[in-house]
Simulated assay, not measured.
Amino acid sequence: MNRRPLGNTGIDIAPLVFGGNVFGWTIDEKTSFAVLDAFVDHGFNAIDTADVYSRWAEGNEGGESETIIGRWLKARPGVRDKVALFTKVGSDLGGKGQKGLGKDWIAQAVEGSLQRLQVEQIDLYFSHWPDPATSYKETLTAYKALLAQGKVKSIGASNLNAAQLEEALKVARQEQLPAYQVLQPEYNLYDRSSFDGPLRELCLKEDIGVVTYYSLASGFLSGKYRSRDDLKSSKRGTGVGKYLTPRGMAVLEALDDVAADQGAKPAEVALAWLMAREGVTAPIASATSVEQVKSFAKAAQLTLSHEQIARLTDAG
């Protein structure tokens, strides 16, 4: 499978990243192992998680996803060299001071992630959310130490707007600190406003890699949610209701049309649109079955025509 440079990190990735939020939440460890095996077997090589995944699930404390990935790596000798691991720091883990992007918490949090993942180095370490209480200088100084220690290979930021990312890059230049190399924004065929425009232009200008989350709009772009009744069938259904609008239906109609032309599923087309989008390195998408991983592989092989891309883009 063709790989793409992830900004200036020196990491080359297949055009789709696995979203590890499902591990320990909607799929158990055994199923997680099978899905990860299939993911690598199909030529993919990047896995995204976070220290907080999946704290929101009943009975979880956070760290479950990293732990499952770590156990999978330990059970699969040699696989570590084939995959790039992305994880994040900054979300509230529930303990005193266990949140934000301050230097003390970053130094502590990275040790927890390394231990759970059972690795010596994290390939890409993200600031999960902006932290108004901490300066960019403090955060980037903490990352400088981790890079020097070899605990992380590269750094990124999630959920920054254009002004925030620009300021972080400015501080890095002024203070001779490492700069964010990758951005993780919410972006899909329906939700475009936060990335399209100044933020995308900045990423293109600065050669910042971009991996998108909610790439299928919480499953809406799969086409399986077309009415309020459909929302009852999934744990994620409650987050999909906002897409059941005239615009959402127009997007699904365009997906249906292009999918029929391509002999593909709507979700595959939605992912292929993202892969073809200027400024996007790869979408992040989650799977709960081996069949869904096979669908990712088909999405990566789709070539949309200019007319099909325009049909999809105009619908949204």
Rank of each mutant, 00 (worst) to 15 (best):
I27G: 00
G59M: 07
V152R: 03
V35R: 02
G209P: 01
E268P: 06
V290N: 04
R3D: 02
L199F: 08
A287Q: 11
N188I: 02
T238E: 13
G209D: 00
Q292H: 15
S54W: 09
K265E: 14
L85A: 06
A287N: 12
L117I: 04
E167A: 11
I309M: 08
L16A: 07
G100I: 01
G241H: 12
E61F: 12
E291R: 11
T9Q: 03
E120Q: 12
D92N: 15
I27Q: 08
P266S: 13
R247W: 09
A148V: 12
P15R: 03
G78D: 06
Q301H: 07
I11K: 00
T49Y: 01
D81M: 08
W56P: 09
P266E: 09
G112M: 00
D257M: 14
V83F: 06
V83Q: 06
P266C: 12
W273C: 05
T134R: 01
F86G: 06
Q164K: 11
L271M: 12
Q115W: 07
V258G: 02
H42R: 15
A34M: 09
C203D: 07
S289F: 13
C203G: 03
A272P: 08
A50I: 04
G94S: 13
W25Q: 01
A282L: 05
V52W: 00
L147Y: 08
N21Y: 09
R247Y: 05
S286P: 05
A259N: 10
V293R: 01
G62P: 03
G24P: 00
A254G: 06
V35K: 02
S289Y: 14
L312C: 11
I13F: 03
D191V: 01
F126H: 14
G223M: 06
G7N: 01
P77C: 11
Q308F: 05
G316H: 14
F18L: 10
L165T: 04
A172T: 02
A264L: 11
D207E: 15
K205H: 14
L189V: 06
S32R: 10
L73R: 01
L73V: 05
V79R: 10
M1G: 07
A276F: 02
T134L: 07
P246N: 11
S233Q: 14
G237N: 07
R192L: 03
